[in-house]
Design a protein around this nucleic acid. Structure first.
Lengths: 191, 191
DNA sequence: AATATAATACCGAACGATCGGTATAATAAA
DNA sequence: TTTATTATACCGATCGTTCGGTATTATATT
């Protein structure tokens, strides 16, 4: 029916995602986004009529969808806890490029005043991830309360290790987090 | 011999700090900085001839100085470990407003490409904090390696809890971090 | 005490550049 | 031709920055 896209949607979102993750929402200028995507500003507005906000929205939505399919859902499966965590760790390592790429949940977080444009999506993502980890901990024998505490710690360690890896310019903190994830979440289980 | 300042340096830095912590470097426009400081844009340039970059530099330097005096140095004293950690936790709670204010080390971190304007200062700050925590863990009986691992975990939990508190719009994760800090760093010590 | 001088702090207005966004026209495939 | 994609050009607004000039103080001189 028409002329084909020079960059398909998936590639486009991925390239835009890099810019937002590297520079944040304010730092991601249309010039940068256009350069990274290989499209002109006008073409970006053809693909995202609502502009920069829509680009960030869709980038965030794609990241959350990836997380759902590659982290949340697998964690809710009925494989052995340690096995699930090992698989998730491997996928997280790819998603965050070994700690070299930041997390959108951090970089798009609202400035102090609560209701930023991404707040509710970010809040929901944190809760979903915590709940998924908690389920694994519970599966391993912890009671509801202890499992939730373990899960929150795991999410804190994930984001803390990303911040630290970026700050130190080293992938080691993130790699350590991945290596210890299973132990942090499961060690000392009742069963 | 001269007209007095309408805002003294300390206040000025504190007010600018809030803007940078809330909005990041790119998000902190001169308009916002002027409004928050009570000075005009032109007056800000009188106080900081090198402009926005200098403002951020001095804000960061002030934060690191505070950290040195209120966290690093106390942790290196010879009081009992748990006692030192309790005092530091109280101070951190104030510094981060119970988790409602972000950390400059996160918000000013370099975008992917290593050498941002703040990279070396941020890297040094992380290393100093890790080392201070490690010293406490060592004092409590851990060997060098274990102490360092504990310290890195503590710093990861600090920043992770801040990211999570902001994302969830709740001070609870940060409060939990502070409550568990002493245990996370010291529990299971050899001695 | 009164006045001039010097020094510093401050601000309104404007700079060029870039921001996000929008037309309109050319191009490429069906 | 028809239709979607892309490119050029442009818009008002805001960006960080600079400049001319004013306010407010202390000191020096009378």
């Amino acid at each position: 029916m028409a002329r084909p896209q020079s960059v398909d949607d998936e590639d486009l979102i991925a390239r835009l995602s890099c810019v937002f993750r590297d520079t944040g929402y304010e730092g991601a200028s249309l010039a940068l986004l256009a350069e990274a995507s290989g499209l002109s500003k006008a073409s970006l507005y053809h693909r995202f009529p609502a502009g920069k906000q829509q680009m960030a929205d869709e980038v965030l939505a794609a990241a959350l969808a990836w997380y759902g399919a590659n982290v949340i859902d697998p964690l809710k499966g009925d494989a052995p806890p340690a096995e699930k965590l090992a698989a998730v760790a491997k996928r997280l390592n790819g998603f965050y490029s070994g700690g070299r790429q930041a997390c959108l949940l951090n970089v798009l977080a609202a400035p102090r005043a609560e209701p930023g444009p991404f707040s509710t999506a970010i809040k929901g993502a944190f809760q979903a991830l915590i709940q998924a980890f908690a389920q694994v901990a519970q599966q391993a024998g912890f009671d509801t309360e202890a499992a939730r505490a373990r899960a929150e710690r795991a999410v804190m360690l994930l984001h803390g290790s990303l911040v630290m890896s970026r700050g130190l310019g080293s992938s080691r903190p993130f790699a350590n987090f991945l290596a210890n994830l299973s132990g942090d979440l499961l060690d000392g289980a009742a069963q």
